[in-house]
């Protein structure tokens, strides 16, 4: 590795935890400096690597996490930790990805990185068995419960059609940066679940969504706060019996990842990887109609990486 390569990789944030220490403030300084964007990509798609390595490549192509996370900021990383299953079952965001995301944020000088989900199965078990709690904590994040109604506060959604009010977890209200880190998988309710659907894990009363046109409510909630970055984990992809899955045979190892600032585009690309037309998924189509982003991938500047 020559010097130029070294600096480039530091800026890209492709640093393992150990060398991050060695670099110290120098690395952070570089990471926090607005990087010139020679090819400002709208979306990065990666395949063929491990979840953490794929994220390193993707974020590097987007100019490093420093383009999204500034020094001293409070960051919320919202993975899917909904189910009491192990990582290979593809029910939850891969712990390696969560870990690397947290490391990048902290390297960029984030004051605090928080991780939580309002889980479906018992939260203590999902946090533990998904491997996400340990991975996030080891990387330096604060892992918080989403299991008490007292964490949720009511907000208005003036642009919502069916969902006009929701009780939202206080971390989403207080975070400076919101990174949505869903997993791509089959879903019996919403057909597929990606980023827009993953945001459902930040509200208290999900029954209301189910009673009042689930797809519209998912799109409505997207109007509340656009994620600064969406990182779709498509390493283990559950193709049937989602979102919980019944056995390992539901899972296809696709080793892919989508990173984008446009939440609708991220979902559209992930849907394509899954094998469905984005506009056939009602909540993605509604979100586009409501102006939350684009599904027309051909109009976007996409960086494609194969590792």
């Amino acid at each position: 590795m020559d010097r130029r390569e070294f600096i480039r990789r530091s800026v890209g944030g492709s640093i393992v935890a150990g060398s991050a220490f060695a670099l110290g403030d120098y690395g952070r300084l570089l990471a926090a400096t607005p990087s010139p964007k020679p090819n400002a990509y709208d979306l990065v798609a990666v395949k063929g690597g491990e979840p953490d390595d794929m994220f390193d490549s993707a974020i590097e192509a987007l100019g490093g996490i420093g383009a999204f996370v500034k020094k001293g900021q409070k960051v919320l990383v919202k993975p899917n930790i909904g189910w009491d299953v192990t990582p290979e079952r593809g029910g939850n965001t891969h712990p390696k990805l969560v870990s690397r995301l947290v490391q990048h944020c902290l390297n960029a000088g984030a004051k605090e990185v928080y991780v939580f989900d309002h889980t479906c199965d018992n939260w203590i078990k999902t946090y533990k068995n998904s491997g996400v709690e340990k991975a996030a904590k080891d990387a330096g994040a604060k892992v918080v419960s989403g299991e008490s109604e007292s964490y949720y506060h009511e907000v208005d959604l003036p642009k919502g059609k069916r969902l006009t009010k929701a009780k939202v977890h206080e971390l989403l209200l207080s975070a400076d940066v919101f990174i949505n880190a869903p997993i791509l998988k089959h879903h019996s309710s919403s057909r597929v679940t990606i980023g827009l659907k993953n945001s459902m894990g930040m509200v208290w009363d999900r029954g209301y969504w189910h009673r009042n046109d689930l797809h519209q409510c998912i799109a409505d909630f997207g109007t509340y706060r656009k994620p600064d970055l969406t990182v779709v984990d498509a390493y283990y992809v559950m193709k049937q019996n989602g979102p919980r899955g019944v056995s390992l045979s539901d899972v296809l190892t696709m080793k892919s990842q989508i990173v984008a600032t446009d939440p609708v585009a991220a979902d559209a690309a992930a849907a394509k990887i899954y094998g469905v037309e984005p506009r056939d998924i009602p909540h993605i189509a509604y979100a586009e109609q409501m102006g939350l982003g684009k599904t027309a991938l051909e109009t976007l500047n996409i960086k494609r990486i194969k590792l």
Binding site: C120, H187, S188, S189, S190, R191, R206, G207, H210, R211, N212, D213, L214, H215, Q216, N241, G242, P243, R244, V246, P282
Partner: peptide
């Protein structure tokens, strides 16, 4: 809900660990 409202729901099947509800 699927019958009365004509909208997607599927919360039951979503949570079913054996997919006895499909």
């Amino acid at each position: 809900i699927v019958e009365t409202e004509g909208t997607d729901c599927g919360a039951c099947s979503e949570h079913c660990p054996t997919k006895a509800v499909n």
